[in-house]
Every structure is written in structure tokens, then in C-alpha cells.
Nucleic acid binder design. Sequence first.
DNA 1: TTGAAACATGAATCGGTATTCATATTAAAT
DNA 2: ATTTAATATGAATACCGATTCATGTTTCAA
Lengths: 213, 213
Amino acid sequence: MNSVAIARIDNAGPGAPKTARGARTRARILKAAEEAFGTLGYHRAGIADITRAAGVAQGTFYTYFAGKEQTLRELVRDMGHQLRAHLEAEIAGARDRLEAEEKGLRAFLQYLHDNPSLYRVLQEAQFVDETIYRDYYEAFGRGYVRMLADATRKGEIRPGNNEVRVWALMGIANFLGLRYALWEQDTPFDDIVATISDLFRNGLAPGGDKEKS
Amino acid sequence: MNSVAIARIDNAGPGAPKTARGARTRARILKAAEEAFGTLGYHRAGIADITRAAGVAQGTFYTYFAGKEQTLRELVRDMGHQLRAHLEAEIAGARDRLEAEEKGLRAFLQYLHDNPSLYRVLQEAQFVDETIYRDYYEAFGRGYVRMLADATRKGEIRPGNNEVRVWALMGIANFLGLRYALWEQDTPFDDIVATISDLFRNGLAPGGDKEKS
DNA sequence: TTGAAACATGAATCGGTATTCATATTAAAT
DNA sequence: ATTTAATATGAATACCGATTCATGTTTCAA
């Protein structure tokens, strides 16, 4: 009885699978959780919804996850990695920072359109445990600031407070994504990117455009 | 028994108070709900938390509100009105659109700092009932687009897709507010406004500043 | 003053759901 | 083939919190 209890406790953590079968099952559950959280939302989604979609019994969930919240945590981490990897690949060919911003924004909009769960999972995580959310954006922001610093050094953008800029840029992408990639696709991504590109190249103020390369 | 049931049902709605005392109580409950939702979050905040803070019994809550969700709905409406009224007043003296954007951003940051509940209540509403959130931003956006259209007509800003711009601008304010007004106040609002103002006046691209008035 | 409507109470109800557990089944090693 | 660890099961548990309701108290008009 005692040994059983200890075994349970040791097992309480993530319980990494030790078998191919286990790995498959765990992955199925995680994907099912992403879908459930993404469509129903974190609170409305029950463990039952997740396990039903994964095709396993409710108890199986706890073989691999310590609870609902840990699952959300892991999902945010995974989805963040995926997104970042995707964006980095997409902006790889850019000649300069402004072009990278254009490519990055377009890629982000498209990615959100194709993976709508990302937005909801991430935003909801904010209210389940704020540190999940903060960590995500602070990590994202740190990398972004580094890129802007490089660009400043290369003379591709004006000197300025790059940290503030980064949060502004993340806000732009976030809201445009919500409005034009998730809610209504009534404006072509090209138009959106062109509008924001014009903002970055010329600002909002009137007056002659700057020289183009 | 039947008449009682009917009376209950008729009463189920908002149950507008008919007495000064009732009005006071309702207002106390609403303010308590704002605080509870703002600090604990919508899901964690229980009716008991609200009524305790308001100094009334749990049942009293249902004398004035149909339920937890309706309360959130009403809060978002109220807080939205307040914020908009405040911002309109703050940008009233602006000479042109760019100055209005500066004043508006500074006022928004300050308002968020002073009323931190706004952010959380609004953002969480998104996942309780998306229409609450959409309505809020679409209403906000409509007014904003009108202002940019005016500014375009007056030649204060470059022609462009003002709807896209508005969503970008709302995103900027939102993220800067979250980062610099709610999370860490490590950067003076003046610096933030100056950075964003430079973005609006000159873009990110290098090259000579435009003429100043 | 009095009676009815409005307001207030708080304990009980009631539904829901995250988590546990005793019990099978399956996979790999000896 | 046998044994043991890993996986899987799903009903039972256990808790939580939104809502209700029978009852008491206050307000206010007549």
C-alpha cells in the first residue's frame, strides 16, 4: 500500500512515456487538447472532451499530464516554438528589416489563419496563469529586440527605443491577426501588409514618399 | 404559486431598482464585481467574493443581476463608455491628428494604469462571450475610422486603408498598455509616446526627418 | 398607521467536472 | 513462457460554486 502510494506520487509528474505506444497516446492527447481548448476554450473544454477526441479513457489523461493547467502550459510552449520557427524560416530571405517586417506580418497572418487555436490558447493562458503568457511574449520580444538592434546597427531603421517598438509591432500583428485572419477575411493580406509597410516606410504624416530602392 | 412563479420570471431580468436604496446597492455590487473580476479574474471570482466585497448577502446579487455573465456584459459596456468619454475629452485640444494620437496614447496608458481592471475584464469577456468583445472593438474602431477619414480629408495624414490602420493603432495601444502600464512601469510614458510619435511621423525607415511645424 | 411592494438574507440545492483508484490489458525482457 | 513494468480503463469520488427560495426587514404611498 505504501509502495503503491509512492509509485503514484513519483508518477504524478509529466510521466514521460517509455514506449512507442505511450508516446503516440500522449501526442494524441496533446493534439486533442489543442483542438478542444482552441474551439471550446480552456474553461468550457472538459477533460472528457479531450479524451473523447483522443479516443482514450479519461483516466489515461492523467498517465501523461499532471492536470489541465499543465497541459495548457505545455501547449503554449509548443505552439510558441512552432510559430517562431515558422516565422524565422519565412523571413530568412529578406534583404533588410523592412522587408522582413512585411514577410513576417504576412506569414503571421497566414499562420494564424491556418492555426486558429494558437490565438485562443495563448490569450486564455493569460488568465489561467499570467506567467505563461508573460514568458511567451517576453521571450518573443527579446528575440525581436535583438533583430531591431541589428537593423539599427546596419542603418536599416532609424535609431529609437526598440523595446517600445517591439511591443508596438507585436500589438499590430496581434490585432490585425484577430480582425483579419480570425474574424473576417474581407481584406486581402496583401492590402494589409501594404498598409503597414507604408506606415513603416513613411509614417502616417503626409508628404512625399521616401526614395525607393 | 403560479403568480409567484410569474413574478419571479418577470423579475428575472436586470430588475432595475425602484428605490434610492436599491440603486445604491446595485451600484455597490457592480463596483465590487469590477474589482473582483479585475483582480481574481472572471472565472476565479465567485458570486460570494462579489457580494462579500459589496457587503450584501449572496441572494441580493440576484435581485439586480440575472447572473454572472450578464454582469460582465454590463461592466464591459460601462467601462467602454467611460474610457471613450475620457479619451475624447483628452484629445479634444489637439491641433491635428498626429497630435491627437499622441495625446490619446498617453491618456490611454494613464487610464489603464489608474484602472487596471479594464484590461482584464475586457480581455476575459472575449472568451466568455465573443460578441461582447467584438462589439466593443468594432464600435471603438468605427469611431476611430471616422476620425482618420476626417484627418485624411484635411490632409493631416496620408491616404491609405484607414480601417487596417485603426486595428493596427488599437493593437499598439493595447500591447503598450499591457507591457508598460500594467506589467512594468520601467519606461516613462513620455518616452513611449515619443517613440510611437516618431513612428507615425517618420516611419521606421532611416533618412531625414520631415519638416516640423 | 398600515399594508403592499421593494429589498435583503443565507442556508440549501443542484449541476458539473477535475481528479483518483482499483482493476484490466498490453508490451518487452528474461 | 513467465514475469514485470507500462498503459489503459471508466466508474466513483470529491469538491466547488452558481443559482434558488422561503423567510425576514425596510421603504413609502395612501
